[in-house]
């Protein structure tokens, strides 16, 4: 068996539900035991490395579903989505989508229709924690933009900023579980939770956004040009009297001042 085959067979043997021991007929474990014992040690190590990573990222879901079920989810997730990065902090990014899909397949998740969105919030929190520091907004560079170029510029969100909207009260669920409080029955809200994950002094924080703030940051996130942003009609949701609609340029200035917008680009 050459080195490449050795490695492929061994890893396949260690990931959940892939290979059988017969792929390694000529190996021994501690005490001269059959290969099963050694493989079991490695399977345990591999699984717990991934389980612990998910436990760190998704503590709220863990609190809701409990250790046993979370462990089952982690094993199934590892089977379906093995890690493809040397950085374990990158593992688990597809867990929210996996849970959303699983909710449709598993009856035991029927009472947790919000679990995918909640995990999305937890992932953005995790991502914000490990995000690179964005450089301060370069106002001097902005002044070099000509009047003719200005409508085409696209602002850029800071790398730690995350946006999520949900028809479930995921922020209330997140806060209640963080404080170990009972959430009671969860029902969909009339108006969506519009949330932004920010980071201050290295600590991620979650903010509820107005629909105007949400629309602006969402547009920036999707690389909308300044001209289109300024020409956009206000959101449908009525939060302000007609005469007090927020000024988009004012909101943009606040977003830049708060470090949510870290720069801009001028498409060629």
């Amino acid at each position: 068996m050459n080195l490449a085959t050795h490695q492929a067979n061994l890893l396949a043997l260690l990931l959940p539900g892939q290979r059988e021991l017969s792929d390694f007929p000529h190996a021994t474990a501690p005490g001269g035991a059959a290969i099963g014992l050694g493989v079991q040690i490695y399977r345990n190590n591999v699984f717990h490395a991934h389980l612990n990573a998910l436990r760190e990222i998704y503590p709220i879901l863990l609190n809701i579903v409990g250790e046993h079920y979370f462990s089952q989810l982690a094993r199934d997730y590892l089977h379906r989505h093995p890690s493809n990065s040397p950085d374990l902090n990158h593992y688990g990014g597809r867990f929210p989508a996996y849970l959303t899909q699983l909710h449709n397949e598993r009856s035991e998740l029927e009472g947790l229709p919000y679990c995918g969105d909640l995990c999305r919030l937890e992932w953005l929190w995790h991502r914000a924690y490990f995000a690179d520091q964005s450089l301060p907004f370069d106002y001097q560079k902005l002044q070099t933009i000509t009047e003719g170029e200005m409508p085409d510029i696209q602002f850029v969100l800071a790398s730690h900023v995350g946006l999520i909207r949900s028809r479930w009260p995921i922020l209330a669920i997140w806060e209640a579980n963080k404080n170990r409080l009972e959430t009671g029955a969860v029902t969909a809200t009339e108006e969506e939770d519009l949330l932004m994950i920010d980071r201050r002094d290295y600590k991620p924080t979650i903010h509820r956004l107005s629909s105007s703030q949400w629309q602006l940051l969402q547009q920036i996130d999707s690389r909308t040009t300044l001209a289109t942003i300024l020409a956009s009609p206000p959101p449908d949701r009525i939060e302000y009297p007609a005469e007090n609609q927020p000024d988009i340029q004012g909101l943009l200035a606040i977003a830049i001042d708060n470090g949510w917008v870290s720069g801009f680009r001028l498409p060629k």
Binding site: Y42, S83, N84
Partner: peptide
């Protein structure tokens, strides 16, 4: 040791056979 192969990562230190091919590699 090795931790990954074919783009998949085990996040554990996996053993190599003590072969000349492994040494050269």
């Amino acid at each position: 040791s090795f931790t990954s192969v074919n783009g998949l990562y085990s996040h554990d230190l996996l053993p190599l056979p003590f072969t000349q091919e492994a040494v050269d590699h």
